[in-house]
Lab assay of single mutants.
Amino acid sequence: QVNIAPGSLDKALNQYAAHSGFTLSVDASLTRGKQSNGLHGDYDVESGLQQLLDGSGLQVKPLGNNSWTLEP
């Protein structure tokens, strides 16, 4: 069960990665100043990332080996 409060997208993504045990490689300029609506409930990694990114204009991309990145 994930419980991440709304706020900074950077912070939300870092909390989610730490909670879910995956690696997220992101260029900080992509997420700077963006906000997230947070995340509450049970999600697989990709669904949770998509939910956190909702409205940010960013997309999640798998890199393999439980690693992910973001792209515009």
Rank of each mutant, 00 (worst) to 15 (best):
Q1D: 09
Q1N: 12
V2M: 08
N3F: 14
I4Q: 02
I4F: 02
I4S: 01
A5D: 10
A5Q: 10
A5R: 09
P6T: 05
P6Q: 07
P6C: 11
P6Y: 04
P6F: 05
L9H: 01
L9R: 00
L9E: 03
K11V: 14
K11E: 15
K11C: 14
A12P: 01
L13S: 00
L13Y: 01
L13D: 01
N14R: 15
N14A: 15
Q15E: 15
Q15L: 11
Y16K: 01
Y16W: 14
A17I: 07
A18W: 09
H19M: 15
H19I: 15
H19A: 14
H19T: 11
H19Y: 12
S20C: 15
S20H: 15
S20I: 14
S20M: 15
G21P: 00
G21D: 08
G21Q: 07
F22R: 02
F22L: 10
T23K: 09
T23Q: 11
L24D: 06
L24Q: 05
S25A: 11
S25V: 15
S25Y: 15
V26A: 09
V26S: 05
V26P: 01
D27F: 01
D27R: 04
D27C: 13
A28P: 14
A28I: 10
A28F: 09
S29A: 13
S29K: 11
S29L: 09
L30E: 04
R32I: 12
G33C: 13
G33W: 05
G33F: 05
G33Y: 07
G33H: 07
G33S: 05
K34T: 02
K34A: 05
K34I: 10
Q35E: 09
Q35I: 13
Q35P: 06
S36M: 01
N37E: 08
G38N: 02
G38D: 01
G38P: 02
L39C: 05
L39W: 02
H40Y: 13
G41M: 02
G41V: 02
G41D: 01
G41P: 00
D42M: 14
D42N: 14
D42T: 14
Y43P: 04
Y43W: 13
Y43D: 03
D44C: 08
V45F: 12
V45A: 06
E46N: 06
E46A: 12
E46R: 12
E46L: 15
E46M: 14
S47V: 09
S47M: 10
G48A: 08
G48K: 00
G48F: 06
L49S: 00
Q50L: 12
Q50G: 07
Q50M: 13
Q51L: 14
Q51M: 13
L53F: 01
L53V: 12
L53T: 06
D54T: 13
D54K: 15
G55S: 04
G55K: 06
G55P: 00
G55E: 03
S56Y: 05
S56P: 01
G57Y: 04
L58A: 02
L58F: 04
Q59R: 14
Q59L: 11
V60N: 01
V60R: 01
V60Q: 07
V60P: 15
K61S: 07
K61D: 01
L63Q: 07
L63A: 09
L63C: 12
L63R: 06
L63G: 07
G64W: 04
G64P: 07
N65C: 09
N65Q: 09
N66K: 06
N66V: 00
S67P: 00
S67A: 12
W68A: 04
W68V: 06
W68T: 04
W68Y: 14
W68G: 04
T69H: 07
T69R: 08
T69K: 09
L70T: 04
L70H: 04
L70N: 04
L70V: 13
L70G: 05
E71I: 14
E71C: 10
P72L: 13
P72C: 13
P72K: 09
